[in-house]
Design a protein around this nucleic acid. Structure first.
Length: 434
RNA sequence: GCCCCCAUCGUCUAGUGGCCUAGGACACCACCCUCUCAAGGUGGCGGCACGGGUUCGAAUCCCGUUGGGGGUGCCA
């Protein structure tokens, strides 16, 4: 096909439940190529199986694609509404003797000799000898057409130029090609079979074993931009080694012929790393707004004001990889008394310095200026007196006030908490020390 | 069993015969910075599965071996 011919791609999910990570990647690559070439992407719901036509499942696909920012051109095509086209095709093959009735079903006649082959854009030439392909069912005994028929008819009827789908569909391709030819088509679409996404065991991601629902990553607080960016890296890599970058740049760089054919492992750790990068790049206000839904779910989060959230959010932004971490990070600000981590307590309160440090801080904090620099200097001086660096000296205070040894910057946190609550917590810790 | 595919650091990738004593990212380790943790900086560890060809020259081409995966429904 001439390089300037308009491209038309399709994403054709079966509504079998939530959108699967693998499907999302397929959708993305179709979308990337359509946008890269200035072509069109049609969304085709493959619901030929009557049991799979539940509307809520289709809505879920729409929602997930919209979340990712993958849009499509024109109205979605529902295969369940195009049965007559498939029926006509089967009738025609029956009339022409290309198909025959077998035990109530209709099978397509596959020649004994010859091969069906195509030049796959990502895997090169693939050939299937006809003698290895059985006469396959095109119409079930209940009268409905099978997937092969719907696929061949729709790709032709919709004017699809590029068929981009998962590698697990390679073996159905010769059947679809034969059907397309039997429909009278002179040409073939360009096929590109994408590498599988696999788990750590190198097996195809499955609903049973793996966390494959796109939704579940969203619920954990993975940003759509980060998810799209990461998914684009599974089977494709930018030539300039810049992995984390705006979608527009990925669209500009993306080529199907650059997709590599070997399976790619889905690595949640790298996803989170990229997500963290996107989180850090957010404007502070945007971050505060983004974490609100998660924070609200905490028992203490319901009556939280956006003002309070805006004050505290910047303290944890660069420490956040997924948004669901944020309630735990912020809790000590908003509960009456922090939950004291037993290990943290044991680690810092056992030594000879803990009580004097707490006592000293308690006394000094009663009257010092309640500002970051002043608090910093005050605690540093108390540590100095005992020959301790600030790193050591701050630990008991941190555990007393936040309950843990790690967390947002201490002095900023003290300022936010206010003198009164800090003194109360120091007293509580002292009491606990006995 | 049969059919099809795949093979560069642990992982994702760059690489399309000489620029490669193989580059980047995640992870890991060390150091620096530092009020903890992060973030950031610097450095390190670590790979062309193996064997034959082709070629002046191979991670790149061909063949084989081994290993892995996908498909084998009147599911899609």
């Amino acid at each position: 096909m001439p390089s300037n011919a308009p491209t038309r791609l399709r994403f054709a999910p079966a509504p079998t439940g939530f959108l699967h990570l693998g499907s999302a990647r397929t959708a993305l690559f179709n979308w990337l190529y359509a946008r890269h070439t200035g072509g069109e992407l049609v969304l085709r719901i493959e619901d030929t199986n009557a049991e799979l036509t539940r509307p809520e499942l289709i809505d879920n696909i729409f929602r997930s694609l919209e979340w990712l920012g993958i849009d499509w051109d024109g109205e979605p095509v529902r295969q369940s509404q195009r049965g007559h086209l498939y029926d006509d095709a089967v009738e025609r093959w029956l009339d022409e003797g290309r198909a025959y009735v077998d035990d109530g079903a209709v099978r397509f006649r596959v020649p004994d000799d010859g091969v069906t082959a195509w030049d796959d854009l990502v895997r090169g030439r693939i050939e299937f000898e006809h003698r290895h392909i059985e006469d396959f069912v095109v119409r079930r005994s209940d009268g409905s057409a099978t997937f092969f028929v719907a696929n061949a008819v729709d790709d032709l009827d919709l004017g699809i130029t590029h068929v981009v789908r998962g590698e697990d569909l390679v073996n159905v391709t010769p059947k679809v090609i034969m059907l397309r030819q039997a429909l009278g088509a002179a040409d073939l679409p360009v096929f590109a079979h994408l590498p599988l996404i696999v788990n750590a065991q190198r097996k195809k991601l499955s609903k049973r074993r793996d966390d494959v629902a796109l939704e579940s990553y969203r619920e954990r607080g993975v940003l759509a931009e980060a998810m799209v960016n990461y998914l684009a890296l599974l089977g494709w890599g930018p030539p300039d080694d810049v992995e984390v970058r705006p979608l527009a740049e990925i669209v500009a760089l993306f080529e199907l012929s650059d997709v590599n054919p070997s399976a790619a492992m889905f690595d949640p750790t790298k996803l989170e790393a990229i997500n963290g990068e996107y989180i850090r790049a957010m404007a502070p206000e945007a971050f505060a707004a983004a974490i609100e839904p998660w924070v609200r779910q905490a028992s203490w989060g319901e009556e939280l004001s956006v003002t309070e959230l805006a004050v505290v959010a910047p303290l944890i932004q660069e420490r956040t990889r997924v948004l669901e971490q944020t309630p735990a990070q912020l809790e000590f600000f908003f509960v009456e008394q922090p939950v004291i981590d037993a290990d943290a307590w044991a680690n810092v309160m056992g030594g000879e310095h803990a009580i004097p440090l707490l006592t000293g801080a308690r006394a000094a904090f009663e009257s010092c200026d309640w500002r970051v620099e002043q608090l910093h200097r005050t605690l540093a001086a108390i540590g100095d007196d005992r020959g301790l660096k600030l790193g050591k000296a701050q630990a008991p205070v941190r555990v007393a006030v936040t309950g843990r040894t790690v967390g947002p910057p201490l002095f900023e946190s003290l300022v936010v908490l206010g003198r009164e609550r800090v003194l109360t917590r120091l007293d509580a810790a002292l009491a606990r020390c006995g």
